[in-house]
Design a protein around this nucleic acid. Structure first.
Lengths: 129, 129
DNA sequence: ATGAGGCTTCCAGTGAGGGGAAGGTCAAGA
DNA sequence: TCTTGACCTTCCCCTCACTGGAAGCCTCAT
């Protein structure tokens, strides 16, 4: 398979696939013409990576997950631990965003949004009392 | 005021303040020795920027907000519009994260997390049925 | 005179790729 | 056989909002 084929079959852009090779996540063979030559296992790994990234795991997390996936003697404890850490980070981000949302939402609802210059949003940002 | 003073009074790192000058958000004067020389209005602007950034506005948003802030004839409508757009982006991010959270949460709770290699998380990521 | 700490500029790196140039390769149609 | 167009390669720069560090100047206290 050439890169275009794995790209359409995995849903990942060719650029991303080359990048994943660059950073050592996959190691496709090369044809005599220099083209990357992907096996089914490469496609499988790329799909794995795509799903893990879609869940917000970092590239380094993915590296660890791939290693665990390929380690037949892994303990599911290790995977769960990584996932729980990631879950905690997601929760933290959600809380941060929620706090921003609430504050900004209050400001927005207190602003008339008309043609006059008086604006509680700017007033708050400027620190005025 | 030197940069160290505005840094401690605004809570922004000196590096960040220099960066804000680089990209034209502030324009502090210079002393004869080449040191940046900040007026109270500069400090005020930096505090404004710090608060806007803390609410998640991008630098370009901040540029617009500062311009609106300094435009005495602005319409509060323009500010509110910007804030509402930002609010929508925040909501989208929260929804994305929440979806990740739910999916990952289910996987985590279905994983025993013991010393055995069997792991629903990896199974799901690998696309196995 | 020396040392500490503050200031300056410039360069490089972060994460996870994206855009695009310059050039090699391949298969199909005229 | 030639050409066209699609595909592939590497390479370098760009993103965003900073952050770290090096090398060197300035100031003040001892």
């Amino acid at each position: 398979m050439n890169i275009g084929d794995v790209s359409s079959r995995s849903g990942l852009p060719a650029k991303t696939i080359r990048y994943y090779e660059d950073i050592g996540l996959i190691k496709p063979h090369r044809s005599t013409n220099g083209y990357r030559c992907f096996a089914e296992t490469d496609l499988h790994k790329l799909a794995f990576l795509g799903r893990a990234r879609a869940l917000g795991f970092t590239i380094e997390d993915c590296r660890t997950l791939m290693a665990l996936y390929e380690d037949e003697s892994r303990a599911s404890h290790d995977v769960k631990h990584l996932a729980l850490e990631h879950l905690a980070k997601i929760e933290e981000k959600i809380a941060d965003l929620q706090a921003m949302h609430d504050t900004l939402g209050e400001l927005v609802s207190s602003c008339a949004g008309d043609s006059r210059p008086d604006c509680p949003i700017l007033k708050d940002l400027s620190g005025e009392e």
